[in-house]
Design a protein around this nucleic acid. Structure first.
Lengths: 154, 154
DNA sequence: CGCATATCATTAGTGTACTAACTAAATCCG
DNA sequence: CGGATTTAGTTAGTACACTAATGATATGCG
């Protein structure tokens, strides 16, 4: 009651960056759902495929660092990608603690199909390329800020 | 191979807005975790509390619209908030199909504690207030773009 | 060499979050 | 009155994402 005058904004839902971030992320990932569904991929799986298309034999640890996902999250996810036939999981011959994650021919071929996805998402977003670039830059700023924070804390 | 020259960027992880969005959301929500843990709230539960602090007797449907969360997601979440003693769930007297979600005294009191959270998150983000406002505006732009898209599609 | 430590992957358990299909109660309207 | 709609809940299934513990392999030091 009094608070609504004394503290009008601090806890208002519309003013929370975290709220906007959570909704925007869910919304945008939702845009990918129908596009990825024909490829048999979820959005996190798509991100893993993007990482593997950039560099193919990678370890779980390496992927974990690249995607900021815990190994515990990636492990079952990678098994699903293996079951889908896009990836093979083999112990590294040089260090048997590590797993060599390698694209199968089907996984490599999927890249051609995936090339159509970013333009379709961009058009679904109704945003110009400069706007998208600005958004990405701002988000990278957030990620970088928190990265330095946690590094300083550690 | 050839693609890496012909299509250098389209599928690069660093260029994906969705990737930046997913990481930023996870990272920022992660900042809340230690702050919300003493209150016994998860981040989605915190968003529900924010909504109830703004307007207290609300229905599930109303919350669902405000938070862009499905009733099927809210239903178990609200039961946890009830179990925590922050919310009561009672059938509306005027329309027994609806649930009146009301703050308990403990739920209302929690707001005072919550007032300390946004500034602490802001400082953890290492971003200036104008930067945070810009980020929020850009994100609201994303949400609005997709909202109009789905409205047009529907 | 051999044990302690570190690293990497996996598992278990909890908690969202989504879709989809279905139940059930209450209200609205013809 | 009676069917259609609305609202909430439930269930089943899939998939993240986290923490913490476990297992297995490497490595390094005495």
């Amino acid at each position: 009651m009094v608070d609504e005058l004394a503290e009008p904004n601090i806890l208002a839902l519309e003013n929370q960056v975290c709220f906007a971030l959570a909704i925007a992320a869910r919304t945008v990932i939702g845009l990918y759902r129908p596009l990825l569904e024909p490829l048999g991929l979820t959005h996190p799986q798509y991100l893993v495929m993007l990482a593997l298309w950039q560099e193919s034999p990678r370890s779980v640890k390496n992927l974990s660092a690249a995607l900021s996902l815990e190994p515990a999250t990636l492990s079952p996810l990678l098994k699903r990608l293996e079951a889908a036939g896009y990836v093979t999981r083999e112990r590294s011959s040089s260090d048997e603690r590590m797993l060599d994650l390698t694209l199968t021919p089907a996984g490599r071929a999927l890249r051609e199909v995936a090339l159509t996805i970013p333009p379709r998402v961009a058009s679904a977003l109704n945003m110009s390329v400069p706007e998208l670039v600005q958004l990405r830059e701002v988000l990278h700023g957030v990620i970088a800020s928190t990265a330095t924070t946690s590094a300083a804390a550690a």
